[in-house]
Design a protein around this nucleic acid. Structure first.
Lengths: 343, 343
DNA sequence: ATGAAAGCGCTAACAG
DNA sequence: CTGTTAGCGCTTTCAT
């Protein structure tokens, strides 16, 4: 048997008042008598009335729903950002739709369109690694009113707010820390250089070397992805060199982990013979018996701030002018055993 | 400037045909000429038409959206289940709304209502630890048509499909494995006994002991939550006993981790002096220098199966009869260093 | 303080 | 093959 939902029509019939009155009473309209309000409220509860957000949204043009597109949801970083977004927006009555791009720009575009069809009020994206141009985003901006907010993996587009951490600074501090610990021949495991975040980390590394008068050696920049396996193989080939590195600053915790595994395999000692520092502060870095130093990206905070940028933009937007914000959060360096040579 | 979305009316006006024709053409209706279809499609693209899912949903009663309520989204287990749900449903045009209950039944109820207002087509829940009765779910089932599917943390309710792993079996196998390794005085760190999953794990442990003629010692069942700290303190007090345990089967990887930390602190040797095995196969268990054995819950698969149960129920539901399924997946025991005493 | 009616964008029954 | 129209459930302007 199919149960039909109670509507305000059902209530209005039962009470012999108009739907307008019911609607107003339910919305606590000032020009409705207290008596009527209470009566309507009681009847609504009794009839198990549930407001249909769909109809309301169709009418108002606001769905009170936002969409989030990330490569994969089940990684610590992205799920934590989403947690932040949800926690910031939920108290304001917003729901969060999540989509996975599988790190592929084709799927990303598809998901973006689906969200647009769904009339979400805002779309948060952390772009795929193979996203090169942002024309499809520009097109959406020019043809719709849906604001788009980019976080972490972003590209700069006029009119689009972005929330990132200061990757340059995080990388700079990590490298400087290694230098201060006395490491001299520091290698860098870089991530996909198509993404700004990894460009910035590389630059932070380079600038730290420069500022401390250390030579920049091209061969010391190893182009890895961000898997454990790549960390292992990078470390392997690194150790075949005549001049061996004495530290690694990895743009990813996973390649750092791979390096650590291989280092153990090679019977070298961390942090005495070689220092290691990663990026992202993945949970496992602190759980390891030999804990790995890492740069924390404060993902939950990033999510909250992203959500907040959207909420603020709504307030401002009454004026019709969309202000673009470029927020940059400060990362936190967590120094652990893997890079602490000095006491 | 506010951009107005193109509607089928705009297209119909421009083309001097009726909205019905436009709608049909867009939906590839069989009784529309190829010519018209192409013309409409071209015009739609040209005018940057985007279908309004809201209107369609209001009309059809189907939002093509499902909701998921979990305690927290940023844990490996839950985010992986959600990933599974998304991947199963996304190809069928469904979107996934995620909600966090913060492990609190009061928030859980609120989120549930929000999802109901949003007219989602299905709601997936993994209940909070303080959820005692399921009356609020029963009420929803009796007053709406929205199917509810419970996964992992479930309670049995008539008419509600559930997807779980065989926690009893996982616990049984883990315990039996310890016994086979020669451990004799095995302690159990149990989780919150309000949740079925932890009851089942406890029972699996007890049955394994029974079947192998080992004594059941009440004091060996330690009521912990699932935090690292609780694992540490449990291990601490355990080691003050006259008769010390020689193995621990923990219902949570985190308490297992805590135990490992404390064991190291106490200068006892894993796995020689004491064996440890956890539950959930959290990523860090394999990354540790001394890897921890654990029971894998196949969360992505659990998500996919959950999604599939919903898809199947739609097919079946044409008959109006809702079939309740109770699916139980088989966990996989991952034997690692922490419990491998024998060669 | 309350009612009547239009309209949000779409689909589908009915008509031709 | 195409058009007319009602209606999904709600809010809101304009009356009263």
């Amino acid at each position: 048997m199919t149960k039909k939902n109670t509507t305000i029509y059902d209530i209005s019939k039962k009470l012999n008042v108009s739907v307008a009155t019911v609607s107003r009473a339910l919305n606590d309209h000032p020009r409705i008598s207290q008596e009527t309000k209470e009566l309507v409220a009681a009847t609504a509860k009794e009839m198990n009335y549930k407001q249909n957000n769909l109809a309301k949204a169709l009418q108002s043009g606001e769905t009170k729903t936002v969409g989030v597109i990330v490569p994969y949801i089940n990684t610590n970083f992205f799920s934590s950002v989403i947690r932040g977004i949800e926690e910031e927006l939920s108290p304001h009555g917003y729901r969060v739709i999540i989509c996975q791009s599988h790190d592929d720009v084709a799927i990303e575009k598809k998901q973006l369109n689906t969200l647009l069809h769904t009339q979400v009020d805002c779309i948060f994206i952390s772009i795929s690694r193979n996203t090169t141009d942002m024309d499809y985003v520009r097109k959406i901006l020019s043809t719709t009113n849906t604001p788009i907010i980019l976080f972490d993996r972003k590209k700069d587009i006029p009119g689009v707010s972005t929330i990132t951490i200061d990757d340059h600074k995080g990388a700079y501090q990590a490298t400087e820390h290694l230098i201060n610990q006395g490491y001299k021949n520091i290698c860098h495991f870089s991530g996909d250089q198509n993404l700004e975040i990894y460009q910035n980390r590389l630059n932070g590394y380079l600038d730290a070397l420069k500022d401390h008068n250390l030579p920049i050696i091209k061969e010391n920049i190893i182009n890895t992805g961000s898997s454990i396996e790549e960390g292992i193989s990078a470390m392997k080939s690194l150790w075949k060199r005549k001049i061996k590195p004495d530290a690694i600053f990895s743009a990813s915790d996973f390649t750092a982990l791979g390096a650590c595994k291989e280092i153990k395999n090679l019977k070298i000692k961390i942090p005495e013979d070689i220092g290691v520092i990663g990026f992202s502060n993945e949970p496992f870095t602190q759980f390891m018996e030999l804990s790995i130093s890492s740069v924390d990206q404060t993902p939950v905070l990033m999510g909250k701030i992203s959500g907040n940028v959207f909420l603020e933009s709504i307030k401002d937007n009454s004026s019709g002018i969309s202000i673009e914000k470029k927020l940059v959060l400060t990362p936190t360096l967590h120094i652990r055993q893997s890079s602490s040579r000095k006491k």
